[in-house]
């Protein structure tokens, strides 16, 4: 290998090594600037909410705020549960059984994010073609299980993580 060839190889190596280290360094500097926009610790600290549900009559619902978003807690009547369960899976754009959307043994309680899966508006209760919810922004209809039936929304309303602390208290998050 001539001396010149050797120099070229050494130079190529130095260029590649410098670019690599430079790119890693740039990434290390840019990442904190990007990640600072993600939810901070104060936002994450608001991650659970406990709700007293003892005052809710069958057929009624309450709305609470969790992580800045409304959560609907609806105590359904037996008729409403039966109606939600009678729906054929073929009629659902986002097929999901009603049983999968409630806690076993507590199936009168429907707990879900009151956020339309289209563009995030809050649907209105007891409205729409399916007796469930209706989003006034772009016309999505949800049924008694909060499942999308008609309109531009792609998915059923989301079920957050929640549990029954006791018979009268639900912990969301």
């Amino acid at each position: 290998m001539s001396k010149e060839e050797k120099n070229v190889k050494r130079r190529d190596f130095l260029f590649t090594a410098s670019y690599t280290v430079g790119a890693v360094g740039l990434g290390a500097v840019v990442w904190p600037l990007i990640d600072q926009m993600n939810p901070d610790k104060a936002q994450q600290a608001l991650a659970t909410t406990e709700v007293d549900i003892s005052q809710v009559e069958p057929g009624k619902s309450i709305t609470v705020l969790w992580r800045g978003k409304p959560v609907f807690l609806k105590r359904r009547t037996q008729d409403e549960i039966a109606e939600a369960r009678a729906v054929s899976m073929d009629d659902l754009p986002d097929p999901q059984k009603d049983e999968e959307r409630v806690k076993e043994g507590k199936d009168e309680w429907l707990v879900m994010l009151g956020v339309c899966t289209h563009l995030g508006c809050v649907p209105l209760k007891d409205k729409g073609d399916y007796k469930g919810w209706f989003c006034p922004c772009h016309g999505s209809h949800y049924d008694l299980s909060g499942r999308i039936r008609k309109g531009p929304a792609p998915k059923n309303m989301e079920i957050p993580k929640f549990e029954f602390v006791d018979n009268n208290t639900i912990k969301i998050g």
């Binding site: 990007i34 926009m37 993600n38 939810p39 901070d40 936002q43 992580r67 800045g68 978003k69 956020v115 289209h118 563009l119 995030g120 508006c121 922004c137």
Partner: peptide
């Protein structure tokens, strides 16, 4: 809310991008 939710339409990473834009779990 509506405009930032436009980004949630992006497949796979849509929801993460929306949360990143908000810096929270909602506007």
């Amino acid at each position: 809310t509506v405009i930032t939710n436009l980004f949630s339409a992006i497949p796979l990473v849509g929801d993460s991008i929306t949360t990143w834009l908000w810096g929270a779990y909602s506007v």
